[in-house]
Design a protein around this nucleic acid. Sequence first.
DNA 1: TCAAAAGTGTTAGAGTTACACCCATGT
DNA 2: ACATGGGTGTAACTCTAACACTTTTGA
Lengths: 298, 298
Amino acid sequence: MNEKEFLQAYDITKYDRPSVTADMAVFSIQDKYIDDITEKPDIRKLPDKKLNILLIKRAGHPFQGKYALPGGFCKKGESVYETARRELHEETGVNYGYLNLFDVFSDTGRDPRGWIISNGFLALIDSEKYRVHAGSDAWEANWFEIDYTCKYENESKIHEIVFKKREQEDSGEREQLFLRGIEQIIYLEQGKKIEWKVEQSEFAFDHGEIILKALLKLKERVEYYGDLVFELLPEYFTLTELQKTYEAILGRKLLVANFRRKIAEMVSETDKMVEGAGHRPAQLFQARKQGVRPQRSN
Amino acid sequence: MNEKEFLQAYDITKYDRPSVTADMAVFSIQDKYIDDITEKPDIRKLPDKKLNILLIKRAGHPFQGKYALPGGFCKKGESVYETARRELHEETGVNYGYLNLFDVFSDTGRDPRGWIISNGFLALIDSEKYRVHAGSDAWEANWFEIDYTCKYENESKIHEIVFKKREQEDSGEREQLFLRGIEQIIYLEQGKKIEWKVEQSEFAFDHGEIILKALLKLKERVEYYGDLVFELLPEYFTLTELQKTYEAILGRKLLVANFRRKIAEMVSETDKMVEGAGHRPAQLFQARKQGVRPQRSN
DNA sequence: TCAAAAGTGTTAGAGTTACACCCATGT
DNA sequence: ACATGGGTGTAACTCTAACACTTTTGA
């Protein structure tokens, strides 16, 4: 039997196969939402920035009414990356920008419909380019502002996230979701492993876990690839906007002088200026295009 | 229709589904193989270490006789991680140690048998624990010594790997495989993307590409998580062995004094010593067990 | 005796952190 | 005038690369 005959006789449908999806954690940076109406809107102060994630409220079964990540099933003839790109375009109107796999979720029982493996993607978009999904009424998409904290308790790491919905229609309380993850290193007889427990009752499927892993991966990648944040900003930006974007993701304040020295070689100045702010106008910058660089030697 | 009724009516088999595999890049560290028989084996000199990868020669179709990564199909009722763990055990006899997903390969046409998605895993084992697979005659497993080089040519990064087979039975030439990958950043109208071209005629499927990505991921992770190399070493090791392991992966020499200061807090000394070497005996160390640590603050 | 590995100390320079300071603009 | 962001200089401190040097063992 030669290879051609083998392939003709090969029947892939004889074996059990899973369904495969691409689910996307779509992040954007937006000005901090002002809760307190009584707060005076100081024209001089620049707003801080906040990390946001796009979540959909499920209209159909299963997990009707629960929040989930946008995503969908892989079709024959496309790679999982192409599935993610297609779904991102369908659901946000954006068909470019950073989109990258970060993990695969395949625990048995993670989807009540059956054997379904989810490919988790990290997507970064400039929120100004985002177009609200208009077509299907299968679901409703919303941006949620992220507050992330992390603390250490006897050898464990506890991650907590509060999601606050933006653009509340009625003037009532803002809708909020909570998520908590506990990370622990377990030493086995041979080697070690990291154990996760995620409390995520307000999310569909295991999407709470996927969201937490996505957020941690985002932080890790931003620290490693400094130029990733440009994907969250428009083409032209001020250095302060860039800094506030970093601060929103890393969760801590940075010193202006040091920050500027550090990112100096990653941006190029333009002759454009911001006008009409209540203070000295800032110069606009662009991400600097550069080729593949040698690895930092240590 | 409630959720229960929905799930009862739901027929997952109505949709096209792919087959899913877990393929593993199994790395180990071994003493450098001595090609030249005439070379005098200096009892006093410690051998350098080399990174090795486990490859199998395919006995059946498709790609009969070509080299491939060990791996297999996911079965219903197991996660892709469990598949990888099971396959690793079946093919190496090792059922612990570092095993982690690094990427997913799903390009259309990557497998002539049909729609097959491969989950690429990185596995690190102590080669002394490795047991040659005895059972099935479906394939033949071999360690290949890795020589990796990387150069820059007009805005592209060119990766080249030579694989040299260990334990050649006859006394002829050592069997060798070659692999070359070209990485380039393409600037699109909106954003940018990284383009890969991989020349890998000697490997089955797209396994050449998977091997290259695995090797680069290994280097990245070793630089990021300094304690990963312990997975490649036995429980007790000398600091020189540890250093030579780093050097084999990073591809450059390190200075002894600086290296020891750097890794000092990651190891704990034991009262064991190495005996019988042709020089001053070295103290044996262990990986230090420690909890989840705070992120380095910058 | 001596080659080779084991192991430690010291110095110069690079990089980082923190803070002080001046500039430009709109209210 | 002054609050606010824009923007720069510099000292103190930490980290790292490089090299010199001593110690210990087996051949």
